[in-house]
Structure formats: C-alpha cells, structure tokens
Write a protein that binds this DNA or RNA. Sequence first.
DNA 1: AGCGCCAAAATCATATAGGAATCTGGTTAA
DNA 2: TTAACCAGATTCCTATATGATTTTGGCGCT
Lengths: 242, 242
Amino acid sequence: MPPRQPSDLPRGKAAVPDVYTAMRASILDGEIAPGTRINIDAVARSLGVSQTPVREVLQRLEGDNLVVYNPGRGYSTTPLLDLPELRSLFEFRLLVEPWAARAAAVDRLANPAGTLEKELAGFRDAMKRSSKDLRQDLVAHDTRFHDAILAASGNPVVRHAFAQTHCHLHTFRLYPADVDGAITVAEHTAVREAIEACDPERAEAAMTTHIRNSFDRFAKAFDGELAPLEDSGPPRRRIVTG
Amino acid sequence: MPPRQPSDLPRGKAAVPDVYTAMRASILDGEIAPGTRINIDAVARSLGVSQTPVREVLQRLEGDNLVVYNPGRGYSTTPLLDLPELRSLFEFRLLVEPWAARAAAVDRLANPAGTLEKELAGFRDAMKRSSKDLRQDLVAHDTRFHDAILAASGNPVVRHAFAQTHCHLHTFRLYPADVDGAITVAEHTAVREAIEACDPERAEAAMTTHIRNSFDRFAKAFDGELAPLEDSGPPRRRIVTG
DNA sequence: AGCGCCAAAATCATATAGGAATCTGGTTAA
DNA sequence: TTAACCAGATTCCTATATGATTTTGGCGCT
C-alpha cells in the first residue's frame, strides 16, 4: 500500500452529503456485495476524502439498515432480505398503509389537492424518459407516492416509523425488476381517486390490493418459494382518534 | 475558555459506549433542557474525551430522536412531545400493539414459556425496591415487556419499527409520573394470561384496554387538554399471513 | 431609536497522527 | 492431519490540528 502523502484537500468543507449518496448508490447497485465488510480506509481513498466523514456516513447508513456495525470489527453491508423477512416487510405494509390510506381519505384537509397527482406524474414521466437509471428513478417516485399518503394520514409518528423501514429501498435491492410501471400506475391511480373522493373504504381496499399485488409480482420471481399472503379471520375493530 | 492542554487520555480505546449512556441519561433527566443546542466541545471536555466520539454518539442519539441535526448548525436536543404528537404516538401504539398481541396469542411457538412472566416479575421487584431511579427502572421493565410481545408476534420488521419509535422513552421524558405501578401490573397480567391461553381476541382486547387506559392516565395530568382516544366506525378486516 | 454591515469570537466539520485491537500467515507441537 | 500459537500487517478508534462556517457584539448610517 502506498504511503499516505499530505493531501491538498480542503478542510472543513461539507463532504458528507456527496459521500452519502455515493456509498448508498454503491450498496444499492451491488458494487459492494451484500454481507461483505467495508474497509473504511479504502473507501476514503477512492472517494478522495479522509476517514472521518466516511465513518459518519456509515453511521447514517446503519440507520437505513444498509450496513451493520460490529464493535471492534467495523462495518459490513447488510445481507439481502431472505424470504421470511420479505414477508414480514409486506405484512408490516399491510398493517400500516391501508390504515393510512383510510385516514387520508377521512381527513381531506391534510391532503392538499394535487400532491398525489404530482407524484404520479413524476412516475409517468420517468417511465417515458427511460433513462439509464430508470429503475432507481421509478423506485424513488414510488417511495414518494407512498410517503405522500403516509403524510396525508396526519400521523407523523406512523409516517416516520414507516419511512424508517425503507421498504422500497430494500425491496429494490433484493429484486430490482419488481417495478412494473404500467400496472403500478394503475393501482396508484385507484388509491388516489379513492382518497380524493373521500371514500375511506375504497381507499383502504385499493391500497390493500396494491400491496398484495406487489407482493404477488415478487412471488412469481421466486417461483413458488413464496406462498401468497393470506387474508382471513374475524374482523378487527377500527382505530380512530377524535 | 482555558487553552486545551495535551491530554493523557488513552488513544484507540473504546469510549463510545460510556459517552452514549452518559449523554442519554443527561437528556432524559433534563440536565440539558429540551430544545437547546449542544456544544460538542463542552460535552467532550466535561466527559474527558475528544470531540470525535461525542459526534459519533450524537449521530446515534439522532436515531433515537433525542437530538436533531441542522447541517452547519450542529445538534440540539429535541423538544418535548406536544399534545398532537403524544396522541399520534398512542394512535401508532393502538395500530401496532394489539395486532402484535393477537399474533403472539396465535403463534404460541414464538412465545417461549416464562418470557413475559419474567419481565412482569422484574417490574414488581423494581416496585418493591423503590430505588432512587425507580421511575427509570419501571420504564425500562415496561419497555421490555412490550418489546417481548412484539418479539413474540413473529414479525421482526414490526418489532424493529416499534422499537425505533422509543415510545416509552419519549413518554417518560414528557411526564415521568405516568407509571402507576399497581395498575400497570394488573393490565400487563391480563395481556400475558390471554396470550398464554392462546386467546387472540382477548389478547388484542387486553392490549387495547391497556394502551387506552395508559393514555387516559396521561390525559388526567393535562387537565382536560387531551381529549380521549375514540374507538368507532366499521370493523376492519384482519391481516394475517399463512 | 432602529436597521444593516463588519470584524472577532465561537463553533462546526474535516484532515492527519498514533495507540489499541483484530486479522493473517506461517510455524510448531500433539 | 489438525489444532494451537505467535509475529507482522492490517484495520479500527480516538486524539489533535486546522480550515470553513456561523454567531455575536459593536459601529456607523438612515
């Protein structure tokens, strides 16, 4: 390894944002294989910064569940989701997102007109552009659409808890081809229309359908290894605040 | 400010864990008033370490929602929950925890015998000891009891999402006297018995009751400023995985 | 008096250095 | 052959120094 020579890099200038996006993209693209250790010094050299901001970025990525930390042994990329974890993730979505869609349809004030449509338009535009990073663009718009509904639910705690799971991010990492643009647009539109029509029942149902279908599209890729989500049992009581 | 003199502190020895617990306790005890900025250098001096581990700890505390970060302007302690946020927190709990109690009652295998009883015993013991940090002890046991149920639900994603809200921590920070030991033990026992009897309906209902009562105990302290949580509307479909 | 501007101080954010722990490989003993 | 052990090298983790940024106090101007 070549000796470290005095750097002429600027000091005290914000480097973290760039390092963060670079490392995040590296992990999502699989440049750093899932489950392998990350050499802080190597990353710092390749990005042309010192170890300090790299360590800070790794701590933030730990919050995204993209890396795991072992004291004294450094950071590794998290392994890909296995099948039970993927199922748990969709189960969580089924618990939270239909509830949020219902709440958004009830509380129309929290849902400024055009917000959802704007995200849908972004999704459609990205599909037409079909850029080099099409998949990443679509996932970003998908994420924002769902977050907009969580925001419209009026419950910041639920929204934050959902955002922190980074479900789209991990889904994308596991199987990038999940996004089937045309079908996704149609299902999103159904959710949007129900919310804007202030129809809580239909909004909740549309969201449930969307999540189930998304899971099924996934399951096909796993060739029967993934049993479909079931829906059964006695009805639950609804939870609403006055 | 006195000039910094060369320190005789050991280098390369792990200091983060101690700094983390110290700063966390400081914030919870209110030594650093909610909503005020944190001077990294001052903290480093008072704890006898350098700024680097303090920054690392602050980034971890940001994940606990105990501090917030403004780029270029450093870290501040998060302000206390206001009433809408507290309501949102309990709304989230009503969404997740009764679901988890039901799942734990269904999937008896994920709930090893004695796990819940052990946490209850710890709670009772802490009450008898009535140590100096009684409230903190009770909150810790309460947190672990609820986490045990989330763990028994068999869904690690939901468990993690719930844990990351640190609801007990923020509740405790807002109003330490919430914990009414005897009543809490009784309500916890009802939940435990329903789960161990494999009675999903009763488990879900017991948990719902416990959370509502806990919220009501809070509301009393706010002297009518906090309207009770309502429970109404059409039944929801249950979500289960096969 | 009130508002805007400028220098000085405080504070943040990163670079570099060095101590402590961990990992690697090669050797020896069972 | 396998397992244990022990340098050497690698890597982590913290300390310190310094550039960049923000905040503060004071001055002059309107």
